[in-house]
Design a protein around this nucleic acid. Sequence first.
DNA 1: TTGAAAGCGTTACCAA
DNA 2: TTGGTAACGCTTTCAA
Lengths: 327, 327
Amino acid sequence: MSTLDEIAKLSGFSKATVSRVLNQSPHVSKETRAKILAIMKETDYVPNRNAISLSKGQTQQIGMITMDLNELILSFMNSFVEISGRYGYQTIIYTTGGDKQKELQAFEDLKMKRVDALLILTSVNAQNVISSYCKYGPIVSWQRMDHPEIPSVAMNQYDGYALALEHLIERGYKRIANAFGRPSSINTHSRRLAYEQIMTKYNLPVMEKWYYSTIYGIRDGEQLVQTLMGQPDQPDAILCANDLVAVGVLSEARRQQLNVPGDLAIVGFDNSELSQTLGITTVRNPIAGQAENAFLLLAPALLGRDMELQPLSFQLIQRETTSLPNH
Amino acid sequence: MSTLDEIAKLSGFSKATVSRVLNQSPHVSKETRAKILAIMKETDYVPNRNAISLSKGQTQQIGMITMDLNELILSFMNSFVEISGRYGYQTIIYTTGGDKQKELQAFEDLKMKRVDALLILTSVNAQNVISSYCKYGPIVSWQRMDHPEIPSVAMNQYDGYALALEHLIERGYKRIANAFGRPSSINTHSRRLAYEQIMTKYNLPVMEKWYYSTIYGIRDGEQLVQTLMGQPDQPDAILCANDLVAVGVLSEARRQQLNVPGDLAIVGFDNSELSQTLGITTVRNPIAGQAENAFLLLAPALLGRDMELQPLSFQLIQRETTSLPNH
DNA sequence: TTGAAAGCGTTACCAA
DNA sequence: TTGGTAACGCTTTCAA
């Protein structure tokens, strides 16, 4: 394991010059550079990252915090990793499993300078706890945060939900049920608002009895259909919190001999791979764009230059679980 | 940002003593320790990881290398992260997307001492390239490697496949088709061997025409059923490369009005969540155990002490896609 | 139990 | 264009 010091001695130049070669400084003569580079090759020299990090005061690492890893989070991460890499940053994942203490570890790592910045995908600690770490480095969030120092790249779910509703209404569905996720979340609130406003706009009844919440996965979707079947009055469309729920709704609807999309239309959310495989109409959530924006928000603090965020929007992906217009 | 040096000055003790407090050395008097600890609290002191890493020559970070992230890999990683954490190691993921150069970055990071050890989940570089990095730190692999210096925690697929075959045969299925994955892989080879030996053992015909390979996902599974339906002679069971394939086979079989498990039995592999949801008989692959063993193999080099590996075995999970004995 | 001082391997400032 | 040298913040002998 050769060090910079050894290279300096072997080449006859100073450590400073060797360092310049390493950092592609223009103030090194061609011959000197060539000579030093040659010796580096020979001795199989590689700079020690820890020394660099200590000296520079930064590690070129960004931490990503999440409770768990699912398809959605993964695609966000993948995009984020990609763009970070382009700017010389590595990423490290903190999976917290929803444990506050474990999550705090990530923030402590920011303080300890193990990472230069933090990306919050999902977090469980109180906002004021988290924001007390802002002084140690830039933090950006996917999940919406109510703190001015922590910008969020979350999209307003209102728009996506409205898109889905208009799609259904246009196709003649009037009795639309909602499968919401976390009842207290801002997303659910936005979606609910969209439902109420859009339905009103088209003079359709706002059916509060068809607000279901805490519907998260396949099982919940299946159960929802069973619940609905047991009732006298039935919806002709179900708008789901995510694609997984839609998968559950679809499979249970088929089991119950319902004709999809004739008797029942189903719309998912996120445009996951599964929705594509099973032909479920869904709303495309521009995850990759949000991930890129997340990095761009970090850029001023990390790279010292502002970068313009790209505008993003939802998009409706029509598949087989909703009919043609005016069915 | 206070430093160890400042704590030393404020407390009136030397840096060495402060360092001892940090590292819970027994050679510090109670009062001294208390005094120093108090000052650390006051000044909101946190040690700088880079300085520690540089000084100690190790980072307490382990890199995990993979081409992509799927459910199986994730559960392996989750377990690995968990056990590593217990011993004070953090993990960092290198997603290579199958790019050799990107993968090499991870190995370079071992050389640069950004990580203390490496876990290979899947890799694309040549074995001799990889093994040239062994001298820079311990490397362990999930994927089977043909290099003595890189131990692998992969299990012999022969045993799992044999388990599935005996299960089918015991239930009266005799015409068993195989949906293999990568034709050249060691796993496929082991599975094929199991098929030939077990079938022979029970005096059943080894049907080479029912060897299908490059069957990886849902789509492939669906297509396989279509292919089989178009042929005069049909199997009464399909043993799948993984659960995803089994999902495809199951859904297409239903679409074709086949009675599962009456007309056709289906067995998956890995015991993924989806197989549970859809009630597919499968072989449980002890992923968590393999992940733990992976860390335990690293332990001698990292912790300086040998740890005993735990013995692992496959297990058959009977669900609704195979019938009761002697159907 | 404590301290002094020499590392660890770079970077970066100031001179030359 | 180059060199000398003080950081960077901690650990680890060796003495006391």
